[in-house]
Design a protein around this nucleic acid. Sequence first.
DNA 1: TTAAAATAATAGTAAAGCTATCATAAATAA
DNA 2: TTATTTATGATAGCTTTACTATTATTTTAA
Lengths: 224, 224
Amino acid sequence: MKPQLQIRMNENLFLRDPVSSELGKKIVGNSILLIDKNGFENFTFKKLAEEIGTTEAGVYRYFENKHKLLVYLTAWYWGWLEFQITFKTNNIKNPVTKLKQVIKMLGSEVEDDIQTDYIDESILYKIIITEGSKAYLTKQVEEDNKKHFFKPYKDLCSIVGDIILECNPKYRYPKSLASTIIEMAHFQNFFMINLPSLTDFGNSKEPNNIILFLTDLVFANLKK
Amino acid sequence: MKPQLQIRMNENLFLRDPVSSELGKKIVGNSILLIDKNGFENFTFKKLAEEIGTTEAGVYRYFENKHKLLVYLTAWYWGWLEFQITFKTNNIKNPVTKLKQVIKMLGSEVEDDIQTDYIDESILYKIIITEGSKAYLTKQVEEDNKKHFFKPYKDLCSIVGDIILECNPKYRYPKSLASTIIEMAHFQNFFMINLPSLTDFGNSKEPNNIILFLTDLVFANLKK
DNA sequence: TTAAAATAATAGTAAAGCTATCATAAATAA
DNA sequence: TTATTTATGATAGCTTTACTATTATTTTAA
């Protein structure tokens, strides 16, 4: 067990902090595996409880419902990714190099981070691609937003937007371009695997193509 | 009642063709209103049945489940939009003008089409923005795709991709750029209204800004 | 006009999505 | 150390969702 990394989470996302107990960590860790396996629609607290040897009520003591759990997972992911990106780019002076590195990290498959014992980031990344947007594409988005549930996502977009502006201070749509590349890193990945005719990557299933596409897209816009 | 337009639908999407009866049309028409009102997650066949004065079983005779109904609605929308786009651009020779017109149509609010009596396109457009991607972001995407449920969406992407290629035959990512602008026309709209800090449009809620952003984005890439 | 098809009315079942209670075990504070 | 709080496990139960089945009645088509 390596020294562990903790992502600071919004306390309104859970009833009891899952990080504070073994059961809580099992809930988070195994929910990722189960959602990946069954899809979010077919995921239930009952199935999760059976999987980890507790009861439905046991899971409900940690999370109010499965929507909150999904928002928790996505928020955790964006928080973790921001940390990774900040860590790997903070010594890069040139904003163009930095932005290229960010796009690369957004478009690459994620590997498990040994600094977080109970979460498998490579699986979490997969569920973010397929289920991530369901965290905000709901009727409760306004309410959830008021409780700052999407702050980690917004923070990451903001960071990317700022790097875009550094590359070209006159560019008029840094935030929209940032949210576009973040969303598209995932959607083009989903399309490549499941609906390949919506992309130019055929059946290559090679994430590098997406990185090339996005890099091209971004820097065509940032040329002065 | 104006002369009516019919969109040709994949027969595997329904059990009984909703267009063939008054009840069927009511099911489709009112499902749009109810999904818009409650969100797809809180939408049930029972509520729909109550709304239109039939029984749950009555709705099930037309659609296998609510997922199929959502796929039906999205497929209908893309089919309808392809018709609109083809109709309004088929006399435009210049591919650049044509692409600009397409982006404009993708990014503009939709108005009700009097050629379709029982469907309110302006509401359907709203649910496409919030619920549209849930039609394919599922575990069954492969299965659904094999049954060609997403053909209308793919067809539209393909048409847009072809216009992109006409503008610049050397551009390497016409399909990915096409799916990007189609998705982003909707996502930026959703963000603008619900998570405005992810865009550069503030609280203007002015769709025209999205059109400007997307036009900018596309033509920066297509310059030769 | 008669048969076929569509609908309404009703019932019923399994699973999902919760909430509540109580006993016990484990952690902690006095 | 004991007392007490806190977390968990076991069990029960309730409402809603997501269906399927049956029969009677109405509508439509041959």
